[in-house]
Simulated scan of single mutants.
Amino acid sequence: MIQHLAELPQDAAQPILDCRDSEGLSAITRPGTALVIWRRSLPSGLTEWLAAQDAERLPHSRLLVRTADARRAVSSVMEQADLPAGPVRDWLIGDIEALVQAFADITASESVDIRLEAVSHDSCWKFHRDYVPVRLLTTYRGPATEWVDPAHADAAMQAQKDYEGPIERLEVGDVAIFKGKMAGDADGIVHRSPPVAGTGQTRLLLCLNTPSDVSPEPWSSS
């Protein structure tokens, strides 16, 4: 059962929470909370604009950036992808910048590992828990992340493609922040990328992590 953050006492423990804005995502720091979801709708203009872009032109980059450099770094990615300039692209850049700042505040990180990926394959189709302390995910185009209530987690992990139990699904634009196996105070939520290979669909996924050994070299504008 998902509880809304505003309906709980400040010190109440709840594995899965909904929130109303980016500030509410900080509830992931509560002991025992493993997933916080900010339900939101993207501007219709952005959804239509992204749907109209050729999949080959969607960004596919990974950057390790200081929060102060996030806007310039993401703008550079958009330029390299040759996405049309204008107010819609500016909104997308600003949204990513705001999420990077929110994630950095929550994790007390000076830098954030940003993956902005066009996904048309099934490389992460398996149900799994992330081997990270915490991770933020949002999908701007295509099917969004699927997850399983903790009561069904073991069944999903064991059955994988044969799992026939209930699956929860984020919507396009929703922002979810997950604790992973390295968090220490909560079991990570079992989730997966929706299988899209062969469907003709290409997702645009934003994934934010704290810096790690597998992060790229720090981004530089030079």
Rank of each mutant, 00 (worst) to 15 (best):
P15Q: 02
A73E: 06
D149Y: 03
D149M: 05
V214M: 15
D154R: 01
D95N: 02
G180Y: 04
L25I: 12
S120G: 14
V148Q: 04
L170F: 14
P87N: 05
I106W: 02
L63C: 09
I177F: 05
S109W: 09
A156W: 04
E146G: 10
S222I: 05
R39S: 10
Q101W: 12
P150K: 02
T47M: 09
L58G: 01
S220R: 15
A197S: 10
I96F: 13
E171P: 00
E146Q: 15
D90I: 01
Q158K: 00
A52Y: 12
P133A: 14
A151L: 06
S222Q: 07
M157S: 02
M182C: 14
G45M: 11
E110A: 13
P218M: 15
S123C: 10
C124F: 12
E117K: 13
I189Q: 02
E117N: 14
V77G: 02
L58R: 03
R89F: 01
I96T: 07
A183K: 09
E164R: 12
T210P: 14
H121K: 07
A12T: 12
K161P: 12
G180W: 06
Q3M: 00
A183P: 08
D185L: 11
P211A: 11
G200S: 11
G45W: 09
F103K: 03
S41Q: 09
P59W: 14
K161M: 12
L8N: 03
L17V: 06
R115M: 13
S222C: 01
R141Q: 07
P150I: 00
L35N: 03
L205N: 03
G94V: 00
T67I: 15
V132D: 07
W49N: 03
L17G: 05
G24L: 10
A186W: 08
A81V: 08
I167A: 08
R39L: 08
A118D: 05
R66P: 03
P59N: 09
I114M: 10
R115W: 11
R72K: 02
M157F: 01
L46I: 11
M182P: 01
A52G: 10
I177H: 07
V36T: 12
S193R: 12
A186G: 04
A70I: 07
D90W: 02
T67M: 08
T139P: 05
P218L: 13
S120H: 14
A12G: 03
K161F: 11
L8G: 01
G184K: 08
S22Q: 12
S193V: 08
V77S: 06
A118W: 07
L35I: 04
D185C: 09
R135P: 03
P59G: 09
R135H: 06
L92R: 08
V132C: 05
D154F: 01
I114R: 11
A151R: 02
P31N: 15
E168M: 13
D105W: 06
V132S: 07
Q80M: 06
D213I: 08
Q160I: 07
Y131Q: 11
R141W: 00
P87W: 06
D90K: 02
I2S: 01
E7N: 05
I114W: 10
I2V: 15
G180K: 06
V134P: 00
S193P: 14
G200M: 07
A55K: 11
E7R: 04
Q201D: 06
